[in-house]
């Protein structure tokens, strides 16, 4: 009996391998395009809000959370008191595509693209400046605009005009 069982198992094994003939899990990248999942973590970019302004407010949470310290930015202030990153650099020779910056970003500005295969001859070419990072689009979140939710005034948006806000208080009134 044992012999027959062994032989049948042997046969089952052979059949298993033979069945695989003609199937393959390999994707011949780059000839065949990859089907990447939507939450794939590739190269980060800076997106714009639905009104076309930069989303980034230079809060520096991304650079704080970055485990490889590859993000460096300097905050600036526009004449309408809106914060923006004067410079924004990512050193992609250090980036590990962990996506923590995207998670940390409170304004949904930094978002990870599906681009992962980019190679350069020199390390210095991996340092992407803001011009190379800022895209003309809203990315994965088409409707979010941080300034509509937060209670700061801007040119074109007065106090009380944000979402879920009352009109400004009259502090001179002592009425109950």
């Amino acid at each position: 009996m044992r012999v027959w069982r062994n032989i049948s198992e042997l046969g089952a094994g052979l059949w298993t391998t033979l069945r695989q003939l003609g199937r393959t899990s390999t994707v011949s990248y780059p000839e065949e395009p990859l089907n990447l999942p939507p939450r794939w973590r590739g190269r980060p970019v800076l997106t714009r809000d639905p009104d076309g302004d930069e989303r980034c407010v230079a809060c520096q949470l991304c650079s704080a959370v970055c485990p490889t310290r590859c993000i460096e930015l300097q905050a600036g202030e526009r004449p309408d008191t809106r914060r923006y990153p004067l410079t924004f650099r990512i050193n992609f020779s250090r980036c590990i595509f962990c996506g923590l910056c995207e998670e940390a970003c409170p304004t949904l500005a930094i978002q990870l693209l599906d681009e992962f295969a980019f190679s350069k001859e020199h390390h210095a070419d991996f340092i992407y400046e803001k011009e190379a990072l800022l895209i003309d689009g809203t990315g994965k979140h088409p409707h979010y605009n941080f300034y509509r939710h937060s209670g700061v005034a801007l040119q074109g948006k007065d106090k009380g005009e944000g979402i879920n806000e009352k009109a400004p208080v009259n502090v001179r009134s002592n009425l109950p």
Partner: peptide, 17 residues
């Protein structure tokens, strides 16, 4: 260094700065 048209300025020389 604020605006840098040249790649890598602001980084150590070894990194091409």
């Amino acid at each position: 260094v604020l605006h840098s048209a040249v790649h890598g300025s602001g980084f150590p020389e070894a990194a091409g700065g």
